[in-house]
Simulated scan of single mutants.
Amino acid sequence: MTWPLRSAALRYNRDSFPTADLATSEGSRAVSRTGGIFTIATGLAVALAACRGGPPASDDAFPTEPIDLVVPFAAGGAADLAARAFADGLSSAVGQPVVVVNRDGASGTIGGSAVASAAPDGYTLGFVPGGVLTSQPHVIETTYDLDAFSYVCQVTERFLLVSGRADGAFESMADVVTAARANPGAVTYGHPGVGSFPHLFMEQLAAAADIELTAVPFRGDAQSVTNLLGGHITLAATAEGSIAGQQVRPLGVFAASRLERMPDVPTLSESGYDVTTSIPTGVIAPAGVPANVLATLESGCRAAYESEAFLAMVDRTFQLPTFAGGAAFGARAVADSAVMRDVVSALGLGR
């Protein structure tokens, strides 16, 4: 069995460490596509509005000009690829161009800040993985909090796995726990940065299993996998797509049920460790967007989510299509943020 891995470096005191689960949600898959036409008349209306220097039209006519979709990570990654497919579907649904704008840096918080500070008119949206909203604001200083946003929809989620080398000594999570208890701190794991979801999820697992692991941070999943395969670390915490095609052995998945593509890999709950988490990705807007504009965006969001191109890209990037409306996505962000706040605090990472 072959698949890839992730990264981290330090030991932590986890007395009274929080182990509450993050919220998870069920996805649905449907295939349809709503078409739309950007007419010459609409273009002229936008041009005339720009000449007047006023708003392009009333809220009831939204949208009457292109929409920016901010992606807080660099082009070419899973979030960016999914965002571009989503943008095409949203454009067809609302009848205006949707332009992907990459604003990467500071673990996604630069892009988050760009959305939070934009005019609340519906013409600036963000396509953001959950960490931008729920973990990073507890780790580093940000210009926003959850109240800085309107929530449009959730469209995907991803699950992390714990993996060892395919030819390594660990064949199950029970083996990992036995080794970690026999020699506290000797079992190491890689993750893509302090305060990242793989780092925080692994520390939740360590607390649930009452073991001490040593976290080793790297700059991205590729370095974690390379170091795992080279024997420099014992485990890696990665997304499903990061271990595809690599000589690794997945030992457990942070999910409520087994993954469709890896049916032989048990959940951590099955192994006796009650840690069930996932990473949602959704669409946000600045706080204060009018309700009718949000309704239009949420409707377009569902149409984009249901498009064949988007569902194909989500599958290609090892994500699970998972739709939730704006209210549900916002409620999940609040719940996940509370868990991550406690985890970060227990690790002594909080700002």
Results as ranks from 00 to 15, higher is better:
V101T: 14
N292H: 10
I140C: 02
V128R: 00
V99G: 03
A83T: 11
I37V: 15
E306S: 15
F310A: 03
G105P: 12
V155L: 13
Y12V: 08
F17S: 10
G185H: 06
P120S: 06
G190T: 02
T322D: 02
G130Y: 03
T24F: 03
V70M: 06
L146A: 06
L10P: 08
T142H: 10
E212P: 00
T317M: 11
P97V: 10
L5Q: 05
A49R: 00
L347W: 11
G95N: 05
L81V: 14
G330S: 06
P280R: 07
R249T: 11
L229M: 10
A78E: 01
G288I: 01
A79M: 01
A285K: 10
I279G: 07
V177R: 02
T188Y: 05
A41T: 13
D60E: 14
A49M: 11
G95H: 00
L213E: 11
Q319R: 05
F254Q: 09
S337Y: 08
G112C: 01
V94A: 05
A85N: 11
E270D: 14
Y12I: 06
A116R: 04
G89W: 10
G230V: 03
S257P: 02
V99H: 10
I37D: 14
V187Y: 10
R165W: 12
L205W: 15
D315F: 03
G108L: 05
A180C: 09
E298L: 02
V31Y: 13
Y123T: 14
Y189R: 03
N183K: 15
W3M: 09
A239T: 03
F17K: 13
G27W: 09
V265K: 04
A179T: 07
F310C: 01
S278V: 00
V283F: 05
L311N: 15
S196A: 04
T134F: 00
T34C: 07
V132K: 00
V314P: 01
E212V: 13
A328L: 01
V339G: 01
T142V: 14
V31T: 13
G95K: 04
A222V: 11
V343S: 04
L297W: 04
T19M: 11
F323L: 03
V101G: 03
G326Q: 04
T322Q: 01
S196E: 09
L69S: 07
G325K: 02
